Amino acid sequence: MTFTKKDVRNFLSSYKIIALVIVIAIIWTFFGFMTYDADLGGSQFLTARNFSNLLRQMAITGMLASAMVFVIVAGEIDLSVGSLLGFLGGVAAILDVIYHWPLFGTIAVVILLGIAMGLLVGWLTAYQGIPSFIVTLGGMLVFRGAVLGATGGITVAPVSEGMKVIGQGYIPGTMGNLIAAALFVLLVVMAFRTRAGRQKHALPVASMPTEIAKLVAIGVVILGFVLTLNSYQGVPVPVLILLVILGVFTVIGNQTVFGRRIYAVGSNMEATRLSGVNVNLVKLMVFGLMGLMCAFAGLTTTARLAAGTPSAGFGGELDAIASCFIGGTSMRGGIGSVVGALVGAVIMASLDNGMSMLGVDTFWQQIVKGIILVLAVWMDIVSSGNQRA
């Protein structure tokens, strides 16, 4: 059988997530083979402990990518998230270590500060007409300078035991099972609500057997995910936080008026404006969500390192943006999903983890990740059928 460019384009357009899961399987198989050691009892990559560490590493990028999807879908970009993460993580460390604030107070202040910074970026972009590229490029410099000034250029440590739990703790097996079951039920409800909505408006839907098979496959993945993590120490707290974010943001994107407006703004901003939608407010709120995720990521980073460091979050914006593009978010706006972005984050984390285990030099790791990013954007162009002649 011969596959044409049109066949490849249709497959990438219709089954992006499946294609990405296949990529993950290939990556894991490769690193599993390359790290096999009979003396140590098998592959060192394909172990519950390593998967736990991999997902913990991915969680921070995933938090940023989950909101970055909405920013890019709305036709904007945010280059300041890595620096804002570092600044907010530094603030958390200062309040916790130097001023001995209670954990709840520290979390509340960091979250409010993150939302405020995100809204400021959104206000400058949406209401003052400054391109988001310029605003966030300036923000990247401002926030990086702010964390250096706040910490004095030194590491602030050690954080309290309560703070450490956010980045280093685990959920007991029983609770992890209950959360996994709740997540699966949520996905089933959303799937059938979406199906009912499409049928109501006479839109095409998959056959019921196909829908059920898809949900069963998702259930098997979730079950394997939880059982694997429970065989080590349980579901890491950062991964649990990320799963909650996945559920909430998926509902926002697929089931709310606000989510539909985000996609409408990115698809055709002028038509959306003329239809009566407050485009500026939508963009403002999207950047506010981005600031919130920077707060979560900053708290998790400080907790995971047990310290606030001036270099925290360095390059985080690139990993988040790359995860979105790898996960199928279109650089032209209007297309993308939180699930896809998190799958992209898993790919990025798997590459980092696997190459580190193989002792690959850092510069080669950066080269490989850069190539993967370019290929992801090329796939977006191919799948949309907008190739240059």
Score class of each variant (00 low, 15 high):
residue 266 G to P: 02
residue 100 H to S: 13
residue 257 V to K: 12
residue 354 G to H: 07
residue 118 G to W: 01
residue 2 T to P: 04
residue 97 V to I: 06
residue 374 V to C: 08
residue 124 L to S: 03
residue 285 M to A: 11
residue 142 V to S: 02
residue 33 F to N: 08
residue 117 M to E: 09
residue 384 S to L: 09
residue 281 L to P: 02
residue 224 G to R: 02
residue 68 M to Q: 14
residue 13 S to C: 04
residue 375 L to M: 10
residue 289 L to S: 06
residue 79 L to S: 07
residue 155 T to H: 03
residue 305 L to V: 14
residue 280 N to D: 15
residue 146 A to D: 00
residue 299 L to K: 03
residue 190 M to P: 00
residue 326 I to S: 04
residue 107 I to N: 04
residue 380 D to V: 07
residue 154 I to V: 14
residue 91 V to L: 13
residue 172 P to S: 09
residue 310 P to L: 09
residue 213 A to S: 12
residue 323 S to H: 11
residue 295 A to K: 11
residue 23 V to T: 13
residue 332 R to A: 15
residue 302 T to H: 01
residue 82 G to K: 04
residue 323 S to I: 12
residue 208 M to G: 02
residue 145 G to P: 10
residue 202 A to C: 03
residue 338 V to Y: 06
residue 361 D to G: 06
residue 314 F to D: 15
residue 240 L to W: 01
residue 151 T to Y: 05
residue 116 A to N: 08
residue 24 I to D: 00
residue 62 G to K: 13
residue 96 D to P: 08
residue 59 A to T: 12
residue 230 N to R: 00
residue 4 T to F: 03
residue 331 M to V: 14
residue 217 A to C: 09
residue 54 L to C: 14
residue 117 M to A: 15
residue 57 Q to E: 13
residue 17 I to S: 11
residue 113 L to T: 07
residue 277 V to F: 06
residue 118 G to Q: 04
residue 216 V to H: 12
residue 19 A to Q: 09
residue 350 S to E: 07
residue 353 N to E: 02
residue 133 F to A: 13
residue 80 S to W: 02
residue 156 V to Y: 08
residue 299 L to A: 01
residue 244 V to P: 02
residue 152 G to I: 12
residue 8 V to A: 10
residue 276 G to W: 12
residue 261 R to Q: 14
residue 235 V to W: 01
residue 326 I to L: 12
residue 6 K to L: 12
residue 140 M to E: 02
residue 65 A to E: 05
residue 121 V to A: 13
residue 224 G to I: 08
residue 77 I to M: 08
residue 368 V to P: 00
residue 217 A to L: 11
residue 111 I to Y: 00
residue 23 V to L: 14
residue 182 A to S: 14
residue 153 G to A: 06
residue 123 W to S: 15
residue 192 F to A: 08
residue 42 G to W: 09
residue 8 V to Q: 08
residue 120 L to K: 00
residue 247 G to N: 06
residue 21 V to M: 15
residue 7 D to Y: 08
residue 232 Y to P: 02
residue 373 L to P: 07
residue 13 S to N: 14
residue 110 V to A: 03
residue 34 M to S: 03
residue 218 I to D: 01
residue 90 G to P: 10
residue 252 I to E: 06
residue 194 T to A: 13
residue 85 L to Y: 07
residue 370 G to K: 08
residue 207 S to T: 15
residue 217 A to D: 10
residue 309 T to I: 12
residue 283 K to M: 13
residue 140 M to Y: 02
residue 234 G to E: 00
residue 171 I to Y: 02
residue 119 L to P: 04
residue 14 S to V: 07
residue 285 M to W: 13
residue 126 A to Q: 11
